[in-house]
Design a protein around this nucleic acid. Sequence first.
DNA 1: AACTATTGATTGAACGTTCATTCAGTCAAG
DNA 2: CTTGACTGAATGAACGTTCAATCAATAGTT
Lengths: 197, 197
Amino acid sequence: MDQTQDKRILILESALELIRENGFHGTPVSIVAKHAGVAAGTVYTYFKSKDELIVALYHYVKAGLLSEISAKDHASDPFQKRFFALWNNLIQVYLNKPAFQKFLEQFISSPYNSPEVQSGPDPWGDWLFQFFKDGVDSQTLKPLSPNILAVMVMGSVISLVRYRVYFKLKKSFAEQELQLIPQMVWDGIKNPQETNL
Amino acid sequence: MDQTQDKRILILESALELIRENGFHGTPVSIVAKHAGVAAGTVYTYFKSKDELIVALYHYVKAGLLSEISAKDHASDPFQKRFFALWNNLIQVYLNKPAFQKFLEQFISSPYNSPEVQSGPDPWGDWLFQFFKDGVDSQTLKPLSPNILAVMVMGSVISLVRYRVYFKLKKSFAEQELQLIPQMVWDGIKNPQETNL
DNA sequence: AACTATTGATTGAACGTTCATTCAGTCAAG
DNA sequence: CTTGACTGAATGAACGTTCAATCAATAGTT
């Protein structure tokens, strides 16, 4: 709404950027504040503590992910098309906003990801569940729990992105070969009944 | 060798355990020392700094992973058998030693994982590469870069373990359904020429 | 219009704590 | 006696958080 909300977002974005580069430990509140153009004390008008800022950031990032991805999904398309679109959109989002991916990775495996956080609402997880449920219900995917399918697919996406982001330096392979990965994943999860469509 | 080496290992194991629970930020050197039964200063006889201790721990964990996994692999078995054995062994190791997985996740996405660390030697990565190269060479797997296949497979393993470790609380599915995941992965990477063996 | 009062956000210096690291002194083995 | 590991109190820097003081905007009064 007003500038008050702007400032909150400004602080979140600054924290996101700085944590991506320097980790939780390496980003003091004072620097986040300076980067956002406010005084250190101001951060505490919007967040009760550094911990709470970081948890808020987690929800902020997940909400961003959901809005970016769901906006580009067309539920009326055939599921196979939706799947490849989802894959490409995920790769795009993660590569365009490396901070999203780096922050999420850091957060998920950190002590900030407490049981309370984990058991809170998770619109992004719910959306993913529904997505794969659509695939199962339409008999395009193997008749498995949508959770399992989501695990499979997200695991491959994250792992691929991680590989490109962290290990780019070392081993490299042709960009075009990367295009084959979603096809492999698809081969793994598609319903064999429907193979010769 | 002597007690000197024992003490080094003791410090590494203590750090591993504590970092798993409390993260890098939450594990002061003094506590690591106490947990290992030595004085704070002693840590600095074995490691130049906390940073160096953490990097050493990274190599220690990867070496442990390599030795556990490679010992249980039989290069003379048919590749499909080797694949499912690898899968199960990875799951077992990660579930038996959650500290391995949690530490690796934290480390990889942290600023400790500097370019220097990334460009150093990586026996575990090399072993994985060779493993999948065997599959490609024997025409059991699709004719792709072993790196890509490794990414696919490790991504699914890590994602599955992460799911079980972090999200156990929330959504759960039948244990037996989990057994279907390696089959899906296998369906994705196997060479279709060989389908009807 | 001019002026004052009130409210609530904002500032940043100061506080107290925590922590990595050091080092002078102790100890044990050869 | 010598050597080198070991100890743990001491050091100093860094950081999260607080709060008295300032500022800006709006409302109220004449």
